[in-house]
Design a binder for these strands. Structure first.
Lengths: 205, 205
DNA sequence: CGACATTTTGCGTGGCACGCATCTTTGCGT
DNA sequence: ACGCAAAGATGCGTGCCACGCAAAATGTCG
């Protein structure tokens, strides 16, 4: 039953999230008022808070959605695939660039990336982004528990795996953004997962 | 040069942090106004914001301080100790209960723990707590880089180690708080670190 | 069409973060 | 011991934000 009601709601939510990010990247976090976001999404200011309980949450919403998809992706992997291979693949799947990214003109791209970095530096957003990651981690842990037949309530194992996987992705992204010599994100993610799965042994020197 | 100026500042900061936690555990997050915290610490409301930029940050400040101490503790460990052993010890050191915890009467203890759980459920605090963890992780990564002779700028290794260690502590604490059959925190931490250092292999079933 | 449910909206309230100007305390050189 | 410069504390005022409440608008279903 995907009634008109549900669709409109999803659309409004997406519009608000997108507008929040767009305006923030453009003008900076505290030069954007909630009123502006609401207006850009064609909705009343009061309605904004029916969808998100804070400005920061709206901006982080897309990040949350994508993170949740990783957990879903893990459940789609074949059951006989080794755990860490499945995790690596599930993570990699989330990093195939979507159409709206591809469509962006190259000149605006650098400016956009700079805006993103500035945005991520905002304390209020860091907290919200981390919360999104934590939420996704919980989902991922549940998926890992199912796959490995461990028990979320009694075993630390699934949560440890989820946290470690999450950390691998985060660190890989961080290195990708700082990219002194630009490195493809796929290589970084694969490498990070391999190191974690090997128990992070100290490098011999 | 530990002048009176610095000491007083540290004391005020500690008093504010402690008051913030205490009042929040007692009454609940949004039944505490900044004004109350300032009053409990014997300071003007305006001064509160000279120390912390938000109510949530004040509450998370002790968590931050403790997390930062783990990084410092790692630097104190003997250089010839194996990395993961040193990390485990450094983490364990932070969990020897202080005098003010020991002094708490047993009956109040359960109520206190419940208050803590309620507090940690508060969204605004989760974000702030996670930010504190992230800050500490950066310090820890630097310490790991020094110890292993790796380069923060080019190697993912130190950040991966820091994130994994941090995750081990977080998961252990989480299990400790849920403690269906109460388990000593030391055992949980040791166990979590061992699993991570072994590469989190799937349990055979 | 008509009644019901859900959502949007406007308004009002309480609180919070912070800039600025002022007053007090502390550290230090003489 | 004294006084000055720097650092910190305080009071006040401003703009914004989250949210409760009740009324109006908008889907939904018989």
């Amino acid at each position: 039953m995907t009634g008109l009601r549900e669709r409109k709601k999803a659309e409004t939510r997406a519009a608000l999230g997108w507008a929040a990010i767009h305006l923030t990247v453009e003008r900076g976090y505290d030069n954007v008022r909630v009123e502006d976001i609401a207006e850009a999404a064609g909705v009343s200011p009061r309605t904004f808070n029916n969808y998100f309980s804070s400005k920061a949450e709206a901006i982080a919403s897309r990040h949350l959605d994508r993170s949740l998809r990783t957990a879903a992706a893990l459940r789609e992997r074949p059951a006989d695939e080794p755990l860490w291979a499945a995790l690596t693949r599930a993570a990699l799947e989330q990093f195939t660039p979507g159409p709206e990214v591809e469509a962006m003109p190259s000149p605006g791209h650098a400016q956009w990336a700079a805006g993103i970095r500035t945005m991520l530096a905002e304390p209020a957003l860091q907290g919200e982004r981390l919360r999104a990651v934590a939420t996704a981690e919980a989902e991922l842990a549940a998926a890992v528990a199912d796959r490995t037949g461990t028990d979320l309530a009694t075993d630390m194992y699934p949560r440890l795996v989820a946290a470690a996987a999450s950390a691998a992705v985060t660190v890989a992204m961080q290195h990708y953004l700082d990219a002194d010599p630009p490195t493809p994100i796929e290589r970084l993610i694969t490498d990070a997962f391999a190191q974690v799965a090997a128990g992070l042994p100290p490098p011999r020197r």
